[in-house]
Amino acid sequence: MLSISNLQAVIGEKQILRGLDLEVKAGEVHAIMGPNGAGKSTLASVLAGREDYEVTGGSVLFDGKDLLDMAPEERAAEGIFLAFQYPVEIPGVSTTNFLKTAMNEIRKYRGEQPLDAVQFLKLMKEKMQLVNIDQSLLSRSLNEGFSGGEKKRNEIFQMAMLEPKLAILDETDSGLDIDALRIVAEGVNKLRSPERATIVVTHYQRLLDYIVPDFVHVLYKGRIVKSGPKELAYELEEKGYDWIKAEVA
């Protein structure tokens, strides 16, 4: 589904990704871990198409298509979803209105008819239960005045609505207490399917107790330096990252 090879990216003058390789197949959950500043969030941003980053080399194929050639909205329409580490507040636009616009733009891109109000509300009710989100939150301005937990839950709700092929969760666990973490993880797990893949970007192993990955990768200095099964996450939790750094050096 996703094939990243030798990806290099800079922000300003600073080289962040230095030849990153990653293969993700449908149905898989990949965890990307690594110390601060390794390039984890950069990878998530580059995949979503954030313009602050400049890709200077390598390639990213998504279902065989050149992802790097697409605008962020095209990537979304092709089935990529980024759950933001810091969801942005959009004053004056309700979650409902926002999602309706997003869904119908994506449907338009795919040559499908827009959802009517009834279809949309039905879908929304169904997905609201999935992440245990309240109707009143959805009528408010998107993310404005939301608590940290509400913002992250709203991200997962949007993901449930848009049903992406590839979901990228960028530090979704940051700022969440254990209850909120569980609710968010449950939402993600309910969306797991053989057709979809997930990349979980996280600093801590904690989230991986709830979202169990098939593969764990360690990102360090802009490259994936070690990959392994889920047990690798426990090893990292126990020993920290220093032994990896030593191994690479």
Binding site: P72, L99, L162
Partner: peptide, 28 residues
Amino acid sequence: NDEALFYMRSRGIPKDEARTLLLYAFAQ
């Protein structure tokens, strides 16, 4: 707000529509 624009685009809303939606909300 560029961050808001990117956030909206990352959900599939094209740039021009995102811009209009943000300004429209501003005027509301």
